[in-house]
Simulated assay, not measured.
Amino acid sequence: MHYEGIIIRPPSEADSIILQVTVGCSHNKCTFCGTYKGKRFRIKDDAVIDEDIRYAARNFSFLRRVFLTDGDALIIPQPRLVRIFSKIREEMPWIQRIGLYGNAKSIIRKSPEELAELRNLGLGIVYMGLESGDPETLKAIRKGASPERMVEAGRRVRDAGIKLSVTVLLGIAGRERSSEHARATGDVLSAMDPHYVGALTLMLLPNTELGQKAACGAFELMDPPEMLAELREMIAHTHLSGGLFLSNHASNYLPLKVRMPAEKAKALAAIDAALRGDVRLKPEWMRAL
Rank of each mutant, 00 (worst) to 15 (best):
62 F>L: 00
184 A>E: 12
158 R>Q: 08
39 K>T: 14
168 V>D: 04
232 R>H: 13
210 L>G: 10
9 R>H: 15
204 L>C: 11
283 P>C: 12
122 G>T: 02
127 Y>L: 04
173 A>Q: 06
74 L>I: 00
255 P>G: 06
269 A>C: 07
215 A>V: 08
8 I>K: 11
222 M>D: 12
191 A>P: 10
274 A>V: 05
21 V>D: 01
274 A>L: 03
252 N>W: 07
223 D>C: 10
163 K>Y: 11
43 I>D: 01
236 A>W: 08
101 Y>V: 04
273 A>Q: 11
100 L>H: 01
203 M>I: 15
131 E>I: 07
234 M>N: 01
194 P>V: 06
104 A>K: 07
146 S>T: 15
260 M>W: 06
164 L>M: 14
129 G>I: 03
246 L>H: 03
235 I>W: 05
215 A>G: 04
96 Q>H: 06
123 L>R: 04
154 G>L: 07
176 E>R: 07
284 E>D: 14
169 L>Y: 08
255 P>C: 07
253 Y>M: 03
171 G>Y: 09
278 D>I: 01
104 A>Y: 02
286 M>S: 13
194 P>Y: 04
242 G>L: 01
191 A>W: 08
216 C>L: 12
33 C>Y: 01
61 S>Y: 02
32 F>M: 13
45 D>T: 09
117 E>T: 15
117 E>Q: 15
115 L>C: 09
255 P>E: 03
214 A>K: 12
249 H>L: 08
114 E>M: 11
244 L>V: 13
83 R>S: 10
